[in-house]
Amino acid sequence: MKENNNHSNAKRYGMVIDLDKCTGCGSCMVACYSENNVPFKTDETNKLDSLNWIRVYKISNNKPYPHSEVCYLPMPCMQCDGIGKHGHSPCVSVCPAVATDYDYSTGIVSQIYTRCFGCRYCMAACPYHARKFNWWDPVWPADMEKYLSPNVSARMRGVVEKCSFCFHRYQLARDKAYLEKRQELAEDEYQTACAQGCPTGAITFGDLNNKSHAVYKLKKSPTAFRLLERLETNPKVYYLSSKSWVRRAGDNYLAHEETEKINNKVKEPYEAKEHL
């Protein structure tokens, strides 16, 4: 009962990011800032206190010149739900205020700013640095306050915020579906701003459980991996990369461990769980 929302089937929204296609241009970050009323400062050089719901990291293989390679890694919230204990995300289980919960109908981890009191346990618990803390009240450039989106609540000083997979777009898409008396959403009705903003189409978004969605096939590709898979957070963001060093950078491996073997071994039980 708990897993069913109204009349529609439970979804498991997720993302597949093709790192071979990512040029590191940062369009996804810009799209996200404007979509979600994310505050910014004139000087964003100190990356430790800049707020962003999706951040593009740069990783390199640390080899000298002729062999050196870099890869850009966009990281939104992974919307973890843990293995077995469906809904056991690291951040949700530590929040003392129930300001964040796991939505069984969509698989999205919420963040309710009016409930959050800023203890930042969730930030400590998150292995992906997906959560950001508002050290200051947002300061919008002249007049910009009027252009903020009314579909996303604005945050204030002292609360934690994070990527919501543009959940308000899901709410609005449901509104339309209700009007048209439909139970299910089409794949293109609910897309995140970053997926739509990406000029190379590196980001694919959809329901990981739905066989007709693109992400369903992509996540099964042999070059797919997830970050820190062995922590059993069961993240819903998959990455694709043809380069083995990139796949190896997705987790901490001992020198003798073989990435692919471990990846495949760890992946199996997740796959089984997803179809429960």
Binding site: N5, N6, D101, Y102, D103, T114, S153, H168
Partner: peptide
């Protein structure tokens, strides 16, 4: 009506 109170994101944005 639905058997559960719903997750926070159902009614919050």
């Amino acid at each position: 009506k639905m058997g559960h109170k719903g997750a926070c994101f159902q009614c919050h944005k």
